[in-house]
Design a protein around this nucleic acid. Structure first.
Lengths: 292, 292
DNA sequence: GAGGGGTCCGACAACGTTGTCAACCGGTTA
DNA sequence: TAACCGGTTGACAACGTTGTCGGACCCCTC
């Protein structure tokens, strides 16, 4: 601020040097500048700084929904790493809408974020190509980008995780295991179905699979339908954290064994709530940091 | 970008007009500019725009911890409102550390956020005074600011909420009700203690109160101590969402009645998990929006 | 006293955008 | 013909900061 400069009787550049802690300023001068700063309540305008220097010290994070425990955990981990690098976090929830995802990404890019972490909602990410060519580091998390894009991606091993869950149930004598999961258009849901199917092998029965967005009514109906089969399921494998909770609620008393993908609070306090922890969110954060 | 201007054979200002959808540009010219923009993959530099216009279209949110369901719910609601206003959200977790809170707030201010929503961790917010005088709209949420500051604040009625919880237990015949809550230095914890105490009246017994940061070991020890009293508690009132979960875990089998402040996922699926929902986070978001 | 080296400081341009103002052009009116 | 008008367009300055460069000054040495 030029007011500070004139108040301290120095040039703009000297003030700049002081606020940035650059060397080559006489201690007495620096002190004079500092008191002027305090007196006037000056604080550096980061926008101008960004404009001049080119780095925004900002990372953009696009997730599904901050309110989902899985993503809020991820957010926190990312935030931690980002702050450690002296940056700030711009975040937004796509709500599983590809359009919203794209809007967020483009807005973040227009603000010239120094890096982007995206949990994609859509399939087509060609709109990112120009951004990538411009050199913006982008990392995908939890789900891979659409075809034709070469981007670092952090994934959990959904297939083998689902396999473990199924084998756990098989080992406890369950031969009829239902799979309730999210829309198979979602990468993780499809992967987990695949793991479930592979682990079941010949035991696989299409009638025990229901995949769609989680709503209590739908899950209730699916379960009710399955339970009227001649050979009803004795166990359920739920495709993600939110699904596990929904299934629990839909079961309401009926005592089926339940295994869920993703951990969730209090899982250990419920009947047989085996959980498979999918990701270590801080691991994802670390990968993002790889590109300070 | 001046490249676009020269590519389209027009002046900078005309490009500016087109990207901003300002009137007074011949359709043919606008079209030429647009194709140049597409061809060059231009996107407006928001930093420069911010510098020139003074508005950042950014809101800062400082909370306790995004990973806490209460705050992640609040975040989501705030985000919703902020996006509706065409703004973006910068958020950070203070981790209940006043220093961190202050750092975050000051960083946000240096970036000239158009508004600030703060769940305070500290007691002293005089450092905000100059910012307030500069005209930045600030809203406190969940907890009030330190003394001597005149700021809009969104609070739940913690006292009467706690009173309701206690009366609920009294109504079910519990005369010995323990209160386990967070450090009384935290506003909400103190308020809830006050409500608990008032509702109990003569039944209040200091030995049934334990307040400190929630850790499983500490809560276990507190509970164990209380249960060895001649007249042990038959019910527990937990001071916040995280505490409720911790108490549940610490109880591990012992069947005390439990009421918690704040709702939490699956509360309805546990034994006697009465809950008092404190805030409607979207309400807070709305208040923040009051100052687009 | 002249030259050399170091320390401290300031003038100036540039970052990319937008607000202001004036210029231009075709057509209409006095 | 001159004055005027609405619709388009462009030149220029400004936003607040930092990088570059060069100037002023002091101390030391020959």
């Amino acid at each position: 601020m030029k007011d500070v400069a004139s108040a301290a009787g120095v040039a703009l550049k000297t003030v700049s040097r002081v606020v940035n802690g650059e060397p080559g300023v006489h201690p007495a001068t620096a002190e004079r500048v500092r008191t002027a700063i305090d007196r006037l309540g000056y604080s550096r305008n980061e926008s101008a700084r960004v404009l001049r220097r080119g780095r925004t010290a900002t990372i953009g994070l696009v997730i599904e929904d901050v309110a989902d425990p899985f993503y809020s955990g991820l957010s926190r981990a990312v935030e931690e790493v980002v702050i450690d690098h002296g940056c700030l976090l711009l975040s937004g929830s796509s709500g599983e809408q590809p359009g919203r995802e794209r809007e967020l990404v483009e807005t973040f890019c227009a603000r010239r974020v120094d890096g982007l972490i995206v949990v994609p909602a859509g399939e087509d990410h060609t709109y990112l190509r120009s951004e990538l060519e411009a050199g913006t580091p982008v990392v995908f998390a939890d789900r891979p980008p659409g075809a034709g894009l070469d981007v670092d991606t952090v994934l959990a091993d959904n297939v083998s995780g689902a396999g473990q869950a199924v084998r756990h149930l098989l080992g406890h004598g369950h031969g009829r295991i239902a799979f309730l999961g999210d829309d198979p258009a979602i990468f993780t849901a499809a992967q987990r179905l695949q793991g479930y199917r592979a682990a079941l092998g010949g035991l696989y029965d299409e009638r025990l699979v229901a995949m769609r967005p989680p709503s209590l009514e739908a899950v209730r109906a699916d379960l009710a339908r399955m339970l009227t089969l001649d050979d009803p399921p004795t166990a359920v494998f739920a495709g993600n954290g939110r699904y596990t909770v929904t299934v629990l609620r839909a079961l309401a008393g009926r005592r089926l064994a339940l295994v869920g993908f993703d951990d969730f609070e209090l899982a250990d306090l419920l009947q047989p709530g085996v959980t498979v922890v999918a990701q270590d969110p801080s691991w994802m954060g670390r990968v993002a940091a790889r590109r300070g």
